[in-house]
Amino acid sequence: MQEPTRRDDGVRRFVHHIKARDIEHGGSASAQIKRELREGGVSAADARRAGIVAFEGEMNLIVYSDRGGILEVDVYPDAIEILIEDDGPGIGDIDLALTPGYSTAPDWATELGFGAGMGLPNMQRTSDGFEIHSHMGQGTRVRCRIERSEDDSTGIGQGT
């Protein structure tokens, strides 16, 4: 478990280093982030969206990256920004990777219930802002922005 840090400008930041193939802990960082966002006053709906984006990114690092990567979440007063970054192998065809249903997941990931080809598309449509940059042999960087709702009136579920 890693504690949130605070940047010099006061923005709350959560940084998790995700190991490649660490399926046993897969999703635990994102569940922790979602929990801490709620505890920090983020609405249920916003925390849920951030949790979904973080989870998809975390599992992508576990399933696809060569050496793992970083899951970083910054909490601004008006938005939540989520950065997922690795140093390889990179995505050959980004448009294809963003196509719902397309997947290059290995069998072991599919057998565990992943690799439905929904990860990146789901991150994209769950976010208000979505950027992806990837170069073969260099790595992939995905940045997602979630605009925070003004109140919790749209909160979904149990409010936790």
């Binding site: 399926i23 046993e24 802990h25 897969g26 999703g27 635990s28 994102s30 569940a31 979602k34 929990r35 249920a44 849920r48 949790g51 979904i52 989870f55 599992m59 565990l112 219930g113 992943f114 979904i156 579920g157 149990q158 936790t160």
Partner: peptide, 17 residues
């Protein structure tokens, strides 16, 4: 029928009841 460790984490994130 999925009993992977991720099930409960997904449930927590999504507010599955």
């Amino acid at each position: 029928g999925n009993v992977s460790p991720q099930v409960i984490r997904v449930a927590e994130i999504l507010n599955v009841i």
